[in-house]
């Protein structure tokens, strides 16, 4: 049984739905990359999954339990197993890096502050920022902020992590450090669903690549197949356009 199961998921209103019946399964430990032209619904899919945008129809279940996005309790339970990292980091500007990481475990999981802090420092060390615990976000570079954001998401001990274009807002020379962090993370066996424009990285890290267009899954398969021998015309066009660049 897949860990995360998405069936016929749609979102958006009226004539121009953003998601138009998405079907996708994510197994335990799988790293799945969503690719496709802008406006194809990749980021919206992640937002719907984490409960920031309401779905209009369809079914999402996690570990066999259906998620009711209209129920606060159900969404809260979901967010203990699934976490997200944003393009713009969304770190709390009024807190230090460490405080950003410890906030949710203490406030929502009921972890003792001392234990949360110890774990927070571990996480910071694991993303290579042990010395930045007391820095505020505006004292960190974009890449450092994004690594703190990843550590913050991991502090909730999620079973699946969503990564939404996490390198798009970074200076080019900062992209590498964040990708290194994700690479290390993939090796730990956590499930990941990521949207990225770093195609070589996608090719390297993914267990499966999913091509989306117009709010639907067009094609999915191992990276080698999607990048070298795509089946669908739209995938061919998209891959072709990328490679020409």
């Amino acid at each position: 049984m897949p860990f995360l199961d998405i069936v016929d998921l749609s979102a958006g209103y009226g004539g121009a739905p953003i998601l138009n019946g998405v079907n996708l399964s994510v197994g335990k430990g799988e790293v799945i990359s969503l690719i496709g032209p802008s406006g194809s619904g990749k980021s919206t899919l992640l937002r719907v999954l984490i409960g920031l945008t309401a779905p209009s129809s369809g079914q999402v279940s996690i570990d066999g339990t259906p998620v009711d996005y209209a129920s606060k309790a159900s969404v809260r339970a979901l967010r203990r197993r699934m976490s997200i990292v944003f393009q713009q980091f969304n770190l709390f500007q009024n807190m230090t890096a460490l405080a950003n990481i410890c906030l949710a475990p203490v406030k929502t999981l009921g972890v003792a502050p001392a234990a949360a802090e110890a774990r927070g420092r571990e996480l910071l060390a694991s993303v290579g920022l042990a010395d930045k615990a007391d820095s505020y976000p505006d004292q960190l570079s974009g890449g450092q902020q994004q690594r703190v954001a990843i550590a913050r998401a991991l502090a909730m001990q999620p079973e699946i992590l969503l990564l939404d274009e996490i390198t798009s807002a970074l200076d080019p020379e900062r992209v590498g450090e964040v990708l290194d962090t994700v690479r290390a993370l993939a090796a730990t066996g956590i499930s990941m669903l990521l949207v990225s424009h770093e195609m070589s990285f996608v090719r390297e890290i993914s267990t499966r690549v999913v091509m989306m267009d117009a709010g639907r899954v067009v094609e999915s398969g191992p990276p080698a197949q999607i990048f070298t021998a795509p089946q669908e015309a739209r995938t061919k066009a998209f891959i072709g356009a990328i490679i020409r660049h």
Partner: peptide
């Protein structure tokens, strides 16, 4: 985005 950041971490509206 700050609200969403708090939201996905499971913080309540009051928190």
């Amino acid at each position: 985005a700050q609200v969403e950041g708090a939201d996905v971490l499971g913080l309540s509206a009051a928190q």
